[in-house]
Nucleic acid binder design. Structure first.
Lengths: 212, 212
DNA sequence: ACCAGTAAAGGTGATGGTGACTTTAACAGG
DNA sequence: CCTGTTAAAGTCACCATCACCTTTACTGGT
């Protein structure tokens, strides 16, 4: 028999503990039974008979982080024969990836811990490869879509959006060129509000265009 | 309970019966039992316990067309609640898409018929949407990758490759610009052979670069 | 033997986007 | 009121692309 499960790679953006710069974090769940007991694994679980695949991903996400995703997309279905769980039953995992916005530092469920995306512990099963693939997809997609705004609130400055891009891509971007690209993308709408308080000219707040 | 199946959208390029220009074809299987009995559906079947997901896709492809895929990639996992098969059991389908090169017009299995991709009959389940999505992926991917060569033989002229692109994208491409793009892509290697026989200058034969 | 037709192959100039860089605007703090 | 800082706008060189043109080299017919 073949078991079917849904897992989710959940990304959030929070400051790095030492450098204080924005970095990618993701929550993992400590396995409490064999196989791979004690190892960290992606949040997930079996598919309920009465729910959608995306709903199952959203549910396990909520159960582990108490958050609702600001972006959710199917990543890949993994079904290699090396995924046997102990008693010779192979598990096919349909993996989603999600972006969440941790407004307040919510307390997740027990056995859940957030890790820096580039400082992960040893993971159970083939989850390390899955996270690598999810990171690759995130870094690709951030360059040609507007998902970066999913890490931010309803309105944001272009510099804040650039900060998200820089954290995801791990390289500095030219502020002027980034602004031009965003403004010409047609995906941003200028509001008449400004972010004041800094020792500098106030920055205009933008929001993403409503879905078409 | 939730059943698990693997289906494949199989594309081939053959001349259009009336215009004689290259067009996309795909094979469908006539369903012999309820639900959707008599309707046409994507080739597929349950997942064997001893095989990979891609192996299952490759196997059903071979069983229905007697061909081996020149390109095979996972498309998406479909698991909507509307996919119940008759007796209330929902089926999660992991769908692959494939490109094949029908060298000789092979005879497929019974109840299999090839259709023009833009003249499909009414399909079973949600297979019409799946085919639409596969077509979208094919048309996208042909523009930034070298999969078009999977429709051709080991060597081919740039004009033949352009013919594939034009058939997939359904619009004419400038021969000179297409040539330059292909030559600068680094994905093609010139051979020292030429295709002669036409009433014109012989065309150099190329092949794709070996996998890195 | 030569010419006409055809498609391969290569070249040219305008255009638009991008990257590196500069300049001006507008605030907070001393 | 000056200074530091970042926002926002502008400038310029460069490169890829597109539409178009020219040359090359073959086949088939006269």
């Amino acid at each position: 028999m073949t078991a079917l499960a849904v897992s989710t790679v959940i990304f959030a953006l929070r400051p790095h503990p030492t450098t204080r710069r924005l970095a990618l974090w993701l929550p993992l769940v400590r396995r409490i039974r064999a196989p791979h007991q004690g190892r960290w694994a992606l949040p997930g679980g079996p598919l309920d008979d009465r729910e959608d695949l995306a709903a199952a991903a959203s549910r396990t996400l909520r159960e582990t982080t108490r958050l609702t995703p600001d972006y959710l997309e199917q990543l890949y279905a993994f079904g290699g024969l090396d995924r046997a769980t102990g008693d010779a039953e192979r598990t096919v995992s349909i993996v989603y990836w999600a972006l969440v916005r941790p407004e307040d530092t919510v307390a997740g469920a027990v056995n859940v811990k957030w890790f820096l995306a580039d400082e992960l512990p040893e993971l159970a099963f083939d989850h390390a490869e899955i996270v690598e693939y999810a990171l690759w997809r995130l870094r690709n997609k951030v360059e040609y879509s507007q998902i970066a705004a999913s890490f931010l609130g309803r309105t944001f400055t272009i510099a804040e959006l650039r900060g998200v891009h820089e954290a995801v891509l791990q390289r500095p971007l030219d502020p002027a060129n980034f602004r031009r690209q965003m403004e010409s993308s047609g995906q941003l709408v200028a509001t008449d509000e400004f972010r004041t308080g800094g020792r500098h000219r106030p920055a205009r707040l933008y929001r993403t265009v409503p879905r078409p």
